[in-house]
Amino acid sequence: LQAFIKTLTGKTFTVEMEPSDTIENLKAKIQDKEGIPPDQQRLIFAGKQLEDGRTLSDYNIQKESTLHLVL
């Protein structure tokens, strides 16, 4: 599935991932794409901060969901 990552500066980019991917995997993909170390990334979806060990499906993240990236 493709999801949108929106930063506080208003920049939006897309990442490809599977519902079974962990938040940790997602942070690694963001690092590959944007060069931001995972330990500096905080991802917010539906008002909740996402925990590394959980999966996208745990948070009911669907295709074309928008996640907010806070540094």
Rank of each mutant, 00 (worst) to 15 (best):
T22E: 02
D52W: 03
I36L: 06
E18N: 13
Q31V: 03
K33C: 06
I36A: 04
F13R: 00
S65A: 12
D21P: 02
R54T: 07
E51T: 05
Q62Y: 10
K27W: 02
G10M: 04
Q62E: 12
T66R: 06
T14H: 07
S57K: 12
L50C: 02
Q40C: 08
N60G: 14
K48E: 12
G47M: 04
F4A: 07
L26R: 02
R42Y: 12
K11T: 07
K29M: 08
T55I: 07
E16Q: 12
M17W: 12
T12G: 07
G10E: 03
V70W: 11
A28H: 12
P37M: 06
T7D: 07
A28L: 15
S20M: 09
K29Y: 08
S20T: 11
G53S: 11
E24G: 14
G47A: 03
T12L: 11
A46G: 12
R54C: 09
H68D: 07
F13C: 02
L26T: 01
K11Y: 15
D58L: 03
T22W: 03
N25A: 13
A3W: 11
L26G: 00
G35W: 02
A28N: 12
Q41H: 02
L69N: 00
V15G: 01
T14C: 08
L43N: 00
Q41E: 00
D52N: 11
S57A: 14
I23N: 01
K27E: 00
N60H: 09
A46F: 09
P37D: 07
A46C: 09
Q41W: 05
K63Q: 13
A46Q: 14
E64W: 14
P37Y: 05
Q41L: 05
T66N: 05
Q2D: 05
Y59I: 06
I5C: 05
T7H: 07
K29W: 06
E51L: 09
L56N: 00
Q41V: 08
K11L: 10
E16D: 10
K63A: 15
E34R: 06
K29I: 09
L1I: 15
L50W: 03
N60P: 04
T22P: 03
Y59R: 01
L1S: 08
T66A: 05
T9K: 10
I23C: 01
P37T: 05
I44E: 09
E24P: 02
E18S: 14
A3Y: 15
D58G: 04
N25M: 15
T12K: 06
P19K: 08
F13G: 00
G47C: 05
Q40S: 09
Q2A: 08
N60E: 06
Q31A: 14
L43W: 03
P38T: 14
T14N: 05
A46H: 14
E34N: 09
E24S: 13
D58I: 02
F45K: 03
F13E: 01
V70H: 12
L71M: 10
E51F: 05
I30H: 00
L8Q: 14
L8T: 14
S20H: 13
R42M: 14
E64K: 08
G53N: 12
L50G: 01
K11R: 13
Q62I: 12
V15C: 03
K11S: 06
L69F: 05
T9W: 15
G53R: 08
L69K: 00
E64D: 15
L71C: 08
A28M: 14
I44L: 11
R54G: 06
T22R: 06
G47K: 03
K29N: 03
D32L: 14
L8E: 15
V70E: 10
T12V: 13
L69V: 05
G47V: 02
I44N: 05
F4S: 08
L69I: 11
N25G: 08
D32Y: 09
N60Q: 08
P37R: 09
L56D: 00
I44R: 04
T22Y: 06
S57M: 12
L50T: 03
F13A: 01
L71D: 06
T55K: 12
A46I: 06
N25Q: 14
P38G: 08
D21F: 05
S20I: 06
T14P: 06
K11F: 10
F4D: 03
Q41M: 13
V15D: 00
I61Q: 04
V70K: 04
E34S: 14
S65E: 08
Q40G: 05
K6N: 07
I30G: 01
P37H: 11
I5H: 02
